[in-house]
Design a protein around this nucleic acid. Structure first.
Lengths: 205, 205
DNA sequence: AGCGAAATCTTTACAGTGTAAAAATAGCGA
DNA sequence: TCGCTATTTTTACACTGTAAAGATTTCGCT
């Protein structure tokens, strides 16, 4: 049982786990390179060797976020195109973001990430592919990612923008304006359910 | 003609204008207290007296953003409830965010703002009230902000989440995945148009 | 008009950050 | 065992936000 070896052995993974802990505990503003190093019990410059710079560490962490998110999404039900599954997946989407608000926020904070990092690029693409598949299934057709029609793209954008917008506004506390004025005890999931149930045309038509 | 008086005279406004310039030029990461002071030509501690701290300055700037946004929205057409006006206003929404990406991002970066600041609270509330009015008009009814039905809340959330989600994903560069695979020359506005045209039910149904 | 008080701005200082470079340590193949 | 490389620490620097003290101007009151 080593108590403080010079060579950690698995510092890379340890740093990522430490980063996730710091993010959950102190939020995005507290997620600094030095804080992560402290949490992992190493010197503040140790992460540099494994991740290059801060954007590198954050990007690898965001990649893990996308993988977790992807797993939560597939676990919520295969994309069979049924309305019930669609609703369940939408709730799983928001549910993941509520369970990991810092991580979800990080995944879409482009200016702090390096999207060219293979791990992040791959993980994000995988999630996107899954979204495309789910929307395709609901339309009973297969959507090619290479060349899609404007109609298909619009359907994908509608689904994604609705859920992502809801998630962001919810995490940013901007939906409390609405929730507060609803019958007492109405929670976000109820609002989400109502929002997705009825069809919508032009902005508020 | 004074060339460098000790008392600036109108430093508060000058700092806000400097902050807007810095934000447009260097983006959100470059918008620091000291950078704003440099841009305005004063010492780095001068802003403290007028805004208290960084969150104070950013909040006042975000308030200006909401006012500009509000003005752009009303200028795009009165909320008469017609589909054409609704579409025009949606495009004005995204158009404003594209013209002022840093400012729009700041307006929704809750962790860097102090929402209790009167100016910000008022400006944000005014924009929200306008949204409620627009959605109400499209439904040919008046929505009370005090107590709204779940149906009304869902309609508001649908419109807002769709547009805000689209805007955020667009500014974060996440829609390029879709735009790139569309017929050559398809721009964001075309996708927005298509997205808002057709009705949508459950996520991708 | 003049004088004290308040407002405004600068200077100085401190803890924290990311990053780069050099030094120290450990593991590993020959 | 020796040398090489990977890993980690130490040191240093420029930058940040904030607090406190000093300097300067303006304002209010008599």
């Amino acid at each position: 049982m080593k108590d403080a070896p010079y060579h950690h052995g698995a510092l890379r993974d340890a740093l990522l786990e430490a980063a996730e802990r710091v993010l959950e505990r102190d939020g995005l503003p507290g997620l600094t390179l030095r804080a992560v190093a402290r949490e992992a019990g190493v010197s503040h410059a140790a992460p540099t060797h494994h991740f290059g710079d801060l954007a590198g560490l954050l990007s690898e962490l965001a990649a893990i976020g996308f993988q977790q998110f992807h797993a939560a999404m597939t676990q919520a039900g295969a994309a069979d195109g049924s309305p019930e599954t669609g609703m369940a997946r939408a709730k799983a989407y928001v549910g993941y973001a509520q369970a990991h608000p810092g991580l979800y926020g990080l995944m879409f904070r482009t200016e702090r990430l390096d999207m060219k990092r293979p791990a992040l690029d791959q993980a994000a693409s995988a999630s996107f592919t899954e979204l495309v598949g789910a929307v395709g299934a609901s339309r009973h057709e297969q959507i090619s990612e290479q060349a899609m029609s404007l109609d298909q793209a619009a359907a994908i954008a509608r689904a994604w923008c609705l859920i992502h917008g809801f998630t962001m506004l919810l995490l940013d506390g901007r939906l409390s304006n609405i929730l507060r004025r609803l019958p007492a005890g109405t929670d976000a999931e109820t609002l989400l359910d109502a929002m997705l149930r009825a069809p919508v045309g032009r902005p508020g038509a």
